[in-house]
Write a protein that binds this DNA or RNA. Structure first.
Lengths: 211, 211
DNA sequence: TCGTCTCTTGACCATTTGATCAAGAATTAA
DNA sequence: TTAATTCTTGATCAAATGGTCAAGAGACGA
């Protein structure tokens, strides 16, 4: 009876299609209203399916939420992983800031979803924080410390430098409403990249020695 | 009939006492679970009153929420308002960062409540953002630009410097779960103050000219 | 003490919402 | 075409929840 178990493992065309529809809609709604603030009906009408149909693909509301969350976490680590110890530190960190700000502009919903999850105690991603994320930060902090030890940048706390980059870049996604209200206008991506890089990295540069 | 209207204006002892109880409890619950994630019953049991009793003091759940929010906004502006154009810029900004981090450690719930509100589009504080907050930022950005024009600190975008300070300091309150998971320990207030000041202000300092 | 006003709450209501299920429609493989 | 499997949904349920109300308890000034 191979056909009995097959459907549970190999997804059909319709399954792939509808699950993608659901997760896209769920990201929008969950990021805008939070977990409790979102109803299954909202997601259903956003993607044009019926509520029982959603619950046919995901048994519980919580399953939809965790599925969306896991899909975003993948994108989250990539830019930091790319930090290369053998390249120029300022250029590498600048590129990292740039990549994070790109995510901010392209997927502000993902950033807000993640922020909301952490804000409320990270009940669904605690293992991710203490495992993969912690390991990655430890590794990349070592890279940064390597640059410092080599005298390429000024010494600061490597971990807190990473936190600082996260904080500032994600601020422009998560607090966009505040930023735009205070500035009276939406900041431009290109300009923001140089401003933020200057703000966070200027202090790391070593002054050219007077000859 | 002066007594008829008096109770609506002058609050009784019991009113003051219970409203304070309610708002304290509401801050804890709202910041932990968000607006929709919070039930009136949760707040009621947290402060030892009955649900109908809460709704005797605040007609609707939303009224409790806005009352808590307004109470926290007051504390929010104070440290920035204290920025003094006539004093040393690095010392003033360092003191501001220090004050914000103190708030972070003393009232992380207030920070989280505010963050949650902004994250979800600031439906209750839109007027505050576009009014008082915007005006204050504009005024203090001018103070910072004054320092730059006088050659006391390097030029950067004054508004984004303020955003950067907000982002980093509040990060340690709003994302405390992530910070602690990654570091494996809770950062100490005193150490954090010098680390964050160094990170954000190092790039502003003017190098002493070689003689 | 008395009478008025304030405070408190058990019981209750209407709505929302996550979840279920049976029955029918659509798809797919043979 | 046929039969098995997958997909879809109207109807429905139980629990949670914001809010109401009447009746009683308590505080307080005269």
């Amino acid at each position: 009876m191979p056909k009995k178990t097959a459907p549970l493992v190999l997804k059909t065309r319709i399954q792939n299609q509808n699950e993608a529809l659901i997760l896209d809609a769920a990201l929008e709604v969950f990021s805008a209203y939070g977990y409790r603030g979102t109803t299954v009906d909202q997601i259903a009408s956003k993607c044009g399916l019926s509520k029982p149909n959603l619950l046919y693909y995901f048994k519980r509301k919580e399953d939809i939420y965790t599925a969306v969350l896991e899909r975003t976490l993948t994108h989250w680590l990539a830019p930091l992983q790319a930090l290369d110890a053998n390249k120029d530190p300022i250029e590498e960190l600048s590129r990292y800031i740039s990549a994070k700000l790109d995510l901010t502009f392209q997927q502000p919903e993902a950033s807000k979803l993640f922020a909301n999850e952490i804000l409320h105690g990270a009940p669904h991603v605690s293992a991710f924080l203490k495992g993969p994320l912690r390991d990655l930060v430890a590794a990349k902090a070592n890279v940064i410390r390597g640059w410092m030890d080599a005298g390429k940048i000024r010494p600061v706390s490597a971990e807190h430098l990473i936190f600082g980059i996260w904080a500032v870049t994600q601020h422009y996604a998560d607090f966009s409403v505040q930023v735009e209200a205070v500035l009276g206008t939406k900041p431009q991506a290109k300009q923001l990249k140089s401003t933020v890089s200057e703000l966070l990295l200027r202090g790391l540069k070593i002054e050219a020695k007077a000859v």
